[in-house]
């Protein structure tokens, strides 16, 4: 099987991997790079457990080929905390009990982190719409919404802390 060299940065680190054309990006992340925080929950692009940031935008890494990541900047859940400090979204999920089994959580937090970077004060409806590509079976979403609202308040209460704004991408 012909392998291609693919170069990208992930969580700020430059990587060069060998990938078969058909290798799904999520498998490259999980298996080639060993970053197992990104999960797989379906094969039809419905569940969002595999959500990562591609050049800052949340996308489903099970519906991309690894070769498409050439030259891109990727961020996974492992890149959210900076210097061991949880980002406001991670903190919000902890404070507000926004997770139970934890399986959908990385994808959910990637989506939430991107939302709060693009929308200053999302309404509850906007939050619910924003996370509608991420399925959670445990929480009933109530506390996920609260977690994102917590993060939103936190980001606004603390003017421009570097670690928060950089987020990790």
């Amino acid at each position: 099987m012909a392998l291609r060299t693919v170069n990208f940065t992930i969580n700020g680190e430059a990587k060069s991997v060998q990938a078969e054309s058909r290798q799904l990006l999520v498998h490259c992340i999980r298996e080639t790079l060993g970053l197992t925080g990104t999960h797989v929950g379906c094969e039809t692009s419905h569940c969002g457990a595999c959500t990562i940031h591609l050049d800052g935008e949340p996308v489903k890494s099970c519906t991309m080929f690894a070769v498409q990541a050439e030259g891109k900047s990727l961020t996974t859940v492992e890149g959210l905390a900076v210097g061991g400090t949880l980002n406001p979204v991670q903190e919000g999920f902890w404070e507000e009990h926004g997770l139970q089994c934890g399986f959908c959580t990385p994808g959910m937090m990637m989506t939430a982190t991107a939302l709060l970077r693009t929308v200053n004060e999302p309404t509850e409806t906007e939050i619910r719409e924003a996370i509608s590509g991420n399925l959670c079976r445990c929480t009933g979403y109530v506390n996920i919404v609260k977690a994102i609202q917590y993060a939103q308040r936190k980001m606004h209460a603390t003017p421009a802390p570097e670690a928060v704004l950089q987020g990790g991408d």
Binding site: R30, E31, L35, T36, G37, T38, H39, V40, T76, V77, E78, L80, A81, L86, Q90, F93, W94, E95, H97, L99, G102, F103, T105, P106, M109
Partner: peptide
């Protein structure tokens, strides 16, 4: 009480079956 198990889940350090290699 905040959950003791959460720090690993929040940082992508959960250990699910598919993570076992």
């Amino acid at each position: 009480m905040k959950r003791k198990e959460d720090p690993r889940f929040l940082q992508g350090k959960g250990n699910y079956v598919e993570d076992v290699n």
